[in-house]
């Protein structure tokens, strides 16, 4: 297959950046999108040009490293997948493909298609955990967790931290990301002691990082490779309102 690629090139954070157009030929329909870019890069190196920088690692959809905005969509034209699990057979021979980095103020561009997503880690730092020191845990079966709650917790916990929710959101909001963690821990008995503080602190950090607000367009959930449902956001909202409007029942 043959493709014309319009790729965002930007030398570093200070550079203005621009689109450049490349041609690739002889691409197998079974090649993944990233492998197609590998082919392009090999070609560019041979031509003495600077290869295109892009993030990737596991290439099986779980590490959350890859993230390209392809033809106007986070992770490309299919819903709920990562870029590494997008295959060229989903494009037509001769297509022109536009590739941009994930764009958001809290995701500064490092080079070309590589962005810094450490803002998401800083949200987690504010409370995306249960404060338990190694060695202090009781027996694992001492606190039963109803299966439906455990299953929902798992659904929320599968977030891979790729940032597609931010990239797809018209307001560059990180609500789905934050809500996934808040909701995961809200489902479990172990998460209760810090539940109220967690949601407040994580939301505050989300704002400090410069993410936008959530306007419930639902774009995030359509693009989310981990299929985090919008119910996570509703859960966060509930917890947030509750935590701010009611007295803490744990303080007697």
């Amino acid at each position: 297959m043959r493709f014309t690629l319009r790729i965002w090139r930007q030398k570093n954070a200070q550079d203005q950046g621009r689109f450049e157009t490349y041609e690739v030929d002889g691409i197998s329909p079974d090649a993944s999108f990233l492998e197609m870019l590998d082919v392009l890069n090999e070609k560019l190196i041979h031509e003495g040009k600077d290869p295109v920088a892009f993030d990737h690692d596991c290439r099986e959809g779980i590490c959350g490293s890859c993230g390209l905005f392809i033809n106007g969509r986070a992770h490309g034209p299919l819903p709920n997948i990562t870029t590494c699990r997008l295959y060229m057979r989903h494009f037509k021979d001769g297509d022109t493909i536009t590739i941009e980095p994930f764009r958001a103020k809290p995701f500064p561009i490092i080079k070309d298609l590589v962005v810094d997503r450490s803002a998401l880690d800083r949200i987690i730092q504010k409370g995306g955990y249960i404060s338990v020191n190694t060695g202090s845990a009781p027996d694992a079966n001492s606190i039963p967790v109803p299966k439906p709650a455990a299953d929902r917790a798992f659904d929320y916990a599968t977030c891979i931290g790729c940032g597609a929710c931010v990239a797809a959101c018209k307001n560059a909001s990180a609500m789905l990301f934050t809500a996934a963690k808040v909701s995961h821990l809200a489902m479990l008995p172990q998460g209760q002691p810090e539940r109220r503080q967690r949601v407040k602190r994580m939301v505050a950090q989300m704002d400090i990082e410069g993410f936008g607000h959530c306007s419930n367009t639902g774009a995030c959930a359509v693009e989310c490779p981990a299929k985090i449902p919008l119910a996570a956001i509703a859960q966060l909202q509930r917890d947030f309102i509750w935590a701010n409007l009611t007295p803490d029942p744990q303080i007697k």
């Binding site: 955990y129 249960i130 338990v132 190694t134 060695g135 202090s136 845990a137 009781p138 027996d139 694992a140 079966n141 606190i143 039963p144 967790v145 109803p146 299966k147 455990a150 299953d151 917790a153 798992f154 916990a157 995961h184 821990l185 489902m187 479990l188 172990q190 998460g191």
Partner: peptide, 22 residues
């Protein structure tokens, strides 16, 4: 043995049976 205890305390959503046990 202790790993499982610690991971459950961390909130890792291991598969559970209907009784709520692992």
């Amino acid at each position: 043995v202790k790993i499982i205890d610690h991971c459950v305390a961390q909130g890792i959503p291991f598969a559970r049976e209907y009784g709520g046990y692992l």
